[in-house]
């Protein structure tokens, strides 16, 4: 193990570590803690210049204000309506593409695989004008579907990389044996491979949920009004209206951060397994 376990070091070193650990964490999360505290600080505190002291009381009214005076609830709802179909769609498509690229040998296999991988890394700007144009002409501009369809297509790139590598690591003998028995390819996919994919599906679902929930660029390019805008775009436009109303900005930020954070804590193992794919050989 590297570094040497702290238990094998001197008593002093252990004490220093025990103090340094929480201290480092507080420093690391300081901006976030500040915003969390500001989100429950009454507006009157800010007006009197009490920016850093304890709030004179815990003002949950900031959150109530945000919900009452802005379309925040609608934004949150929009985010869910865009994110959930995207997760389902891109996972479903990539289960099939990943299966095809992992199990079959054909000439274009590697080329297609690398096309998905490379496509996943291109800058969004090179897609922006044509995708916006297409969405407009399909009549899906400023709708959930316009946004979700693009996300499904784009995320298929990353998901295919993930699924293909996962299926490639499964024991191929299973598939061979089934073929000898005369099982059709569709049934092999459905009854043999799919049940083994649960961990991959879980890992990808949490990752894609977080990516799409946090997407800002496509939300600004493909939606314009609160009927369809997800929370990232909504928060950005509210930020323009709430000039220096930091207690409201903070409350809105915390609300936008909550769902992915909850997702991360509930599915931590899967999340990290998905993110660190390929970090070890």
């Amino acid at each position: 193990m590297f570094p040497r376990p702290i238990q094998q070091r001197s008593q002093t070193a252990q004490w220093v570590y025990a103090i340094a650990l929480p201290l480092a964490l507080i420093l690391w999360l300081f901006p976030l803690l500040g915003v969390a505290i500001t989100s429950v600080r009454p507006a009157s505190d800010l007006a009197q210049g009490n920016y850093f002291g304890w709030p004179s009381y815990i003002a949950f009214e900031n959150y109530a204000d945000v919900f009452r005076n802005t379309p925040m609830l609608q934004y949150i709802q929009n985010s869910f309506i865009v994110t959930i179909p995207t997760v389902i769609g891109s996972v479903a498509l990539s289960l099939m593409t990943g299966f095809a690229l992992a199990v079959y040998k054909f000439k274009a296999n590697l080329i297609l695989f690398f096309m998905f991988v490379a496509g996943n890394f291109v800058p969004f700007q090179i897609l922006m004008v044509p995708v916006r144009d297409m969405t407009l002409s399909l009549g899906m501009y400023n709708t959930y579907w316009g946004l979700a369809l693009f996300h499904i297509a784009f995320q298929t790139g990353f998901c295919t990389l993930f699924m293909r590598n996962f299926i490639k690591a499964l024991p191929f003998e299973l598939i061979e044996a089934a073929r000898v028995e005369g099982v059709s390819e569709a049934r092999i996919f459905w009854y043999i491979v799919l049940p083994l994919m649960r961990p991959a599906i879980a890992a990808l679902s949490v990752l894609i949920f977080t990516f799409i929930w946090n997407d800002f660029f496509w939300a600004t390019v493909l939606t314009t009004s609160p009927e369809a805008q997800p929370i990232t775009a909504g928060l950005s436009s509210l930020n323009g209206q709430w000039v220096a109303a930091w207690h409201l900005v903070s409350a809105g930020s915390i609300l936008a951060a909550l769902p992915p954070v909850a997702m991360f804590f509930l599915m931590q193992k899967h999340f990290i397994a998905g993110l660190t794919l390929g970090a070890v050989k």
Binding site: L93, S94, M96, T97, F99, A100, L101, V103, Y104, F106, N109, L112, M115, F116, G119, V122, I126, L127, V129, P130, V131, M134, L149, F150, I152, A153, F154, T156, G157, T160, F189
Partner: peptide, 19 residues
């Protein structure tokens, strides 16, 4: 393999490669 690839490839082509 082509049938399994078709839906994903179509979406990816329309929204990523062709643009």
């Amino acid at each position: 393999p082509w049938l399994f690839l078709a839906p994903g490839m179509l979406m990816f082509a329309v929204y990523v490669i062709i643009p």
